[in-house]
Design a protein around this nucleic acid. Sequence first.
DNA 1: ACTGCAGCTTGACAATTGTCAATGCATTTT
DNA 2: AAAATGCATTGACAATTGTCAAGCTGCAGT
Lengths: 192, 192
Amino acid sequence: MYELFFEKLAEKIALTPGQQDIIKRYLIPKKIRKNQYLLQEGDVARHAAFVEKGALRAYSVDEKGAEHIIQFAFEGWTISDMYSFMTGNPATYNIDALEDSELVLISTNAQEEILKQIPEYEAYIRLQVTGAYMAMQKRITSMLSLSLEERYINLIKLYPNLIQRVPQRMIASYMGLTPETLSRVRRKIKNK
Amino acid sequence: MYELFFEKLAEKIALTPGQQDIIKRYLIPKKIRKNQYLLQEGDVARHAAFVEKGALRAYSVDEKGAEHIIQFAFEGWTISDMYSFMTGNPATYNIDALEDSELVLISTNAQEEILKQIPEYEAYIRLQVTGAYMAMQKRITSMLSLSLEERYINLIKLYPNLIQRVPQRMIASYMGLTPETLSRVRRKIKNK
DNA sequence: ACTGCAGCTTGACAATTGTCAATGCATTTT
DNA sequence: AAAATGCATTGACAATTGTCAAGCTGCAGT
């Protein structure tokens, strides 16, 4: 259990089996069915969720009811409403499952406890967040400087399995487009 | 010297005067004139820069020569090409000064040394990066779900001094717009 | 003070993207 | 097997945004 979690952890920091056991005690396994919510806007995010298996998305809903996907999370990724998780304020994003999924939950308290007992864990979180930050920076740069076709091609190159696992309209939402526009972008690319 | 740097540091972690002295030894003060480069695309970012005074921007340049601003940095902010800084790969962004500025540089080596000697510093960086991550997430959410007018109004509300210190065309660039479009957005807002 | 330049604004027009409606296809439900 | 549902595609048209050209303003440098 928690195989992938500790595998990813080991990529960033070295821990003894004893330290791993301490961490294990604070982890909560959770299975979640497709379409179920992990977090709803307005609730407080009391956990960060590491994805052992499956796929989730975080998204906001605007006044018109349109959904805007801020993040996907597949195996090996962590997802939460970071702002809510860090501050205890109500979440501004919804998170739900795109597939039946297996998660590892870490509560705010658990994270504090782990940090107290295993200071190395701090570096793990730092590197984790840094990676997420850099990915997000690339995403903004792509939005600012590339054509839709280039953006789509790059996205698929970066996450080749995205197409297989996520409906087009959600990729459109992630890119800030309507499904119709994404469909036309794909046609243009195909006809080249 | 380094007043603001240590003030910001103290907001996140508690350090003894002795620890502060250790950090001080690794910091490099640098003054930079308006329009001067701090970093050019292709070079390796060997430092992160904390802004004691002044203003800088990080931006990429596309094939057509258009600039796209990924980040502004004013007093109390840190700026670098994080990817290059972390990996040692060539930078993909340019960084230059919008005003005569006073910076505190921290080299990659300095950061490593500080982390070795003062483990509390790790938490500082983590919180720093987490803040940057959350800000960037808000920026993407704003790009995905708001109208141009709302985005502009929110931006000005968030950074009220931006208008005073940064030319409109750079705000347009930051928002992913042409200067003409931003000018029209501003006119619409004014006529309400 | 004068000149020149850079930045903001405006207008006319082009290109891109969104909206709405219809269709087709595949999957699920009955 | 038939019906219903959800998703992708397409077309026609509307709205938004970009492009190009021109003019205005204020500041910088002489």
